[in-house]
Design a protein around this nucleic acid. Structure first.
Lengths: 103, 103
DNA sequence: CATAAGTTCTATAAAATAGAAGATATAAGG
DNA sequence: CCTTATATCTTCTATTTTATAGAACTTATG
């Protein structure tokens, strides 16, 4: 893998920021809030699945909402490998920012 | 378009940093230097084409190398719209960095 | 005329995006 | 109580867009 993709990075960053239970719909809400753009539910779960299959997050089944709705949540947490990827992504941007392309 | 894609952003950032003539092979070299990873030539030109079709860069035919090689260069420069995209990308990361996901 | 420097083209894999369908708990109403 | 409606949340999948690699091509100079 060359780099974390855009949506993988944003989703992973958000997972690392949210405290307490982290689940798909909550991530969608926060991502919409911070980016000011619409996120379809698929555009959250697809990268989530991919992040999990790459080992950057792990998930387990949580309890159902205490609110009206029914279905139980899938809760996510970032792994050590996931944190490392975020660090590398940040480092890439720092390198880019300070790069002097001398000819 | 929701966001600039990863490679579009990196290529566009590099274009905005290089002074003097900016062309594909030179971008490839700088991108490899700053990222420490291999960039195939296609992974530079494909996003370049897309950036141009979206109006974020413009290109014109330059002169042939003064060195041995032959073919004339295609020179790129970032447009105002391209700069704006970069500003937005940067702003996205700043917002992410300072976001407090209050439940 | 061989070769270096550079671009174009194209095939394939991976990622992004939208939204319909499915699951299931609580609310509401008779 | 029991049935049905509805809210919350996830899964699935089709389509479009991006990424990636490298072969093929162009052309000036040694």
């Amino acid at each position: 893998m060359k780099f974390l993709s855009r949506s993988e990075e944003l989703v992973l960053m958000m997972i690392s920021k949210v405290e307490g239970d982290v689940y798909g719909v909550l991530l969608k809400e926060h991502l919409e809030k911070v980016t000011g753009k619409y996120w379809s539910i698929g555009s959250v779960y697809v990268p989530l699945d991919r992040l999990e299959s790459k080992g950057f997050v792990k998930s387990y089944t949580g309890e159902a909402s205490s609110k009206r709705g029914g279905r139980s949540k899938r809760l996510y947490e970032i792994t050590d490998e996931g944190r490392q990827q975020l660090t590398e992504a940040q480092s890439l941007y720092e390198k880019m920012a300070s790069y002097q392309p001398l000819v």
